[in-house]
Design a protein around this nucleic acid. Structure first.
Length: 507
RNA sequence: GAGCCCCUAGCUCAGCUGGCUAGAGCACCUCACUUUUAAUGAGGGGGUCCAGGGUUCGAGCCCCUGGGGGCUCACCA
């Protein structure tokens, strides 16, 4: 392995630390009493600006910068909560005759990125910065590679930023270390999932796990990843959805189930698509899609409050303010198209829809049936203009093979999608529980497949058998977690909300 | 899949119309400095200019091929 001069220096320093009798990778625990952010939040001062509390604190982290001035020095320590300045003076950390701990270890052998533990007291410097005056210094771990070192000037302008997306995603550990905002995005993601889980638990639902490896991929229209089970000698698929398994659990007698599900689709990758992504799906017996709209509003309002500043329900993205406080506007698909294009699709047959599509300059092709045509018109001419959370309801039956037929409107199903900032965020139904109808829908899917629709759904005989045993009326929903996090953190690409987005193999 | 752009030091980037030994800031090394904060001052080291081929007296720069990356557009969440 070819080492750069800086890497060589660090390895030399490692050896010199050992030579001083200090273990560069110590095994023992280092109990910490405070985090950097706690200190900055808790510090108290008297009238003269003297710090009156926090006179015995222990913290640990990486040294991120050093300003050495002879027999004293300042450094910045970064822990999981943020950064705080350290003041280190020679005679404090090395009170005896032997000044090696300061002169050698601290001044020369500690490199930026090394882990140290410090014990000391909090004070305020002449320039007014809350700092920790170090009394004891413990070496906790060597860093053999130099970190990128972004710097900020007085105006907050950043120099030498570590911003190459490829390097940031490939070496997320470096990205997280040097770009504090990145950490904040992932904290929000975690808080969001915690808040959603809490809401669903409080609703009385049970968290479950269903197979990721499936013999038949069902529940959505997408190309799967295919693999092979050696012992059984059968093909297996990574799930493209977990819907059909969750419904089997409803059939089995659980009244409400949910799953945060990693889902896999073998399709294109771009800034809104990663081959694996996360959905939360939940199904509740004896409910319909109206109930689900109410619940969806409450869930999102609760979750956005939980991660927002001061419990706000508002999010700003691209200069637009989006408010997640319910109730959301509810609009049938036909009304939405009428409102945005002036065209009436209600009762239109395939030929009339084709004519409407052409008038609206929407690209269509011969394989598209009625449902697909309506979907295209909506997707091209309406969806992008729905910025505030909006439920679009009552979809054409052809596009929704797992959804119950509308209780009063011919040719439609009881389905809604939640559109926010022009993008689909959730998809929900009154679930189809009539096994005869379900078999007929699967057969229609087979016909669509023969007509050339690559996304048509496959027949699942075991699922049909389950339905034939009887399924209660049920409402179900799937919410895309990654896109929700993108919205709530103002990120434009899915890679920014996944710790380790899929990349081409290195080299 | 199509179009446009990018690849130069550990990091961020200059590099003119093809012309001296390829530059800057930070980082790194040496020295000084006990309240600095993009610390400062003095000195120093560090390059397969993405790779290969071509044009040329001469290529970081022009041409070709390949690799890697980004953005925009079309399809899927």
């Amino acid at each position: 392995m070819e080492l750069t001069d800086q890497e060589t220096t660090r390895r030399d320093n490692l050896a010199k630390i050992r030579a001083l009798g200090i273990e560069p990778f110590p095994a023992a625990s280092f109990p910490v009493t405070h985090l950097a952010a706690d200190i900055l939040a808790q510090v108290e001062e008297d009238e003269e600006g003297k710090v009156t509390n926090l006179q015995d604190v222990t913290l640990a982290g990486r040294i991120m910068s050093q300003r050495i001035m002879g027999k004293a020095a300042f450094a910045n320590l970064q822990d999981s909560s943020g950064r705080i300045q350290l003041y280190v003076s020679r005679d404090d950390i090395a009170p005896g005759e032997d000044k090696a701990l300061y002169n050698d270890l601290f001044k020369k052998l500690i490199d930026l990125g090394d882990f140290v533990g410090v014990k000391g007291f909090v004070f305020k410097t002449r320039t007014g910065e809350i700092s920790v005056h170090v009394r004891e210094l413990t070496f906790l771990g060597k860093s053999l590679r130099p970190l990128p070192s972004p710097k900020k000037d007085e105006e907050g302008k950043v120099y030498d930023e570590f911003k190459d997306p490829e390097l940031r995603y490939r070496m997320r550990y470096v990205d997280l270390t040097v770009n504090p905002k990145v950490k904040e995005t992932f904290r929000k993601r975690s808080r969001l999932i915690t808040a959603m889980r809490q809401f669903l638990d409080d609703l009385g639902l049970m968290e479950v796990e269903t197979p990721v490896l499936q013999p038949i991929h069902g529940g959505a229209a997408a190309r799967p990843f295919k693999t092979h089970h050696n012992t059984l000698d059968v093909p297996m698929y990574l799930r493209i959805a977990n819907e059909l398994y969750l419904k089997r659990l409803i059939i089995g007698g659980f009244d409400g189930v949910y799953e945060f599900a990693k889902t896999f689709r073998n399709e294109g990758m771009d800034r809104t698509h990663n081959p694996e992504f996360t959905m939360v799906e939940f199904y509740v017996a004896y409910k319909d899609y109206h109930w689900m709209m109410d619940t969806c509003e409450q869930l999102l309002e609760h979750s956005v409050r939980a991660i927002g500043d001061g419990g706000s329900t508002e999010v700003t993205i691209d200069g637009k303010t989006i408010d997640f406080r319910g109730p959301y506007r509810r609009l049938t698909m036909a009304d939405a198209i009428r409102e945005h294009t002036g065209e009436d699709i209600e009762g239109a047959d395939e030929a009339e829809l084709r004519a409407i599509a052409e008038r609206l300059d929407v690209h269509v092709d011969k394989t598209m049936g009625r449902g697909k045509l309506i979907d295209e018109i909506f997707g091209e001419r309406v969806e992008a203009s729905l910025v505030q959370p909006t439920f679009i309801t009552d979809y054409p039956v052809e596009m929704s093979p797992l959804t119950k037929k509308h209780r009063s409107k011919e040719g439609l199903v009881e389905r809604f999608e939640l559109i926010v900032n022009g993008k689909e965020l959730a998809n929900a139904y009154s679930e189809l529980n009539d096994p005869i109808d379900q078999r007929a829908r699967f057969e229609e899917q087979l016909q669509l497949a023969q007509r050339g629709d690559a996304e048509a759904m496959a027949m699942d005989e075991d699922f049909l058998r389950a339905l034939e045993y009887g399924m209660p009326p049920t409402a179900g929903i799937g919410i895309g977690i990654d896109r929700l996090v993108m919205l709530l953190t103002g990120q434009k690409s899915i890679q920014e909300v996944l710790f380790f987005p899929q990349m081409k193999p290195e080299r």
